[in-house]
Design a protein around this nucleic acid. Structure first.
Lengths: 140, 140
DNA sequence: ATATAAATTTATAATCATTACAATTTTAGA
DNA sequence: TCTAAAATTGTAATGATTATAAATTTATAT
């Protein structure tokens, strides 16, 4: 599914983000590759076409996107951040064997734990770990 | 609540961990300071008494503890790992203003999302972000 | 249009948590 | 007590992220 740059620009403007070419391309990457990518993955993929792209730009852009709530940062990895274009309430499963990340459906939208009724909750993250079906097959 | 080293040693042995003096002291620190500490916090605190303690030992010991399921690593921070001596099912709230971590009660023990019924789930982590009551007071 | 200021991008260097590695010390068993 | 294995230590390397300043692009006013 190709995404017209003009449509992407409109969406960025809608989120109060000036649609520079780099930002549009990073946004497009996130939409077309919903793999919870790292900064390095985004940078490596886009560098092929945007020869002058700097990794700092990728960092800056993602910081901006997070700030504007266009993407959600995932701290599920111990050493590097990942980014999720899907900001709706859902969970993430990480396979300890192959490292792959899977989305799963879980709604905590209107769930507020007793102890937190005096807290303002801005964000809810749910991370499960274990072994995915493919890796289970290989093992047995 | 002081903890006798012999009791702590017994608990380590029970988890198949040889109770070296360093391991006992790190274990004791985790029990007596349930603040989800970082490696650096543990190291800095213990260094005062264990003059020759090496940060590598703290890393090694925590890796071992995680492996033996004596502690649980928390990836809630973007830049550094924290460790939780409480391995029971519960959630963590991080205040975006003061950075403090709060525990809250949430049981997902027997919850398995539809999409994951072919997955083996080893661990469930729940991270909320927002503003804690103290920081809310200061703001208003 | 053109000059000027602001925003954005870029390249490089610095930071800092973590890991790798090898040497030293301690522990356990013969 | 001797020897091998395990644990600890110190130092160096790694690698993601951040800081910084220069260069480029964009927006605005004249």
């Amino acid at each position: 599914m190709p995404h017209a740059n003009s449509d992407l620009a409109a969406k960025l403007i809608n989120k109060n983000i000036k649609p520079s070419y780099q930002r549009i391309r990073i946004f497009r990457y996130l939409i077309e590759n919903q793999n919870h990518p790292t900064v390095d993955q985004i940078f490596s993929a886009l560098q092929k076409e945007l020869l002058t792209l700097s990794k700092t730009t990728v960092y800056n852009t993602l910081d901006l996107f997070v700030d504007k709530k266009l993407v959600r940062p995932l701290t599920i990895e111990e050493n590097e951040l990942r980014f999720d274009i899907n900001v709706e309430d859902h969970g993430h499963f990480k396979c300890e064997s192959c490292g792959q990340l899977f989305d799963f459906h879980i709604k905590l939208d209107d769930y507020i734990p007793q102890e937190l009724n005096k807290f303002v909750i801005n964000d809810k993250n749910i991370y499960f770990n274990g072994i995915c079906p493919d890796c289970l097959k290989i093992k047995n």
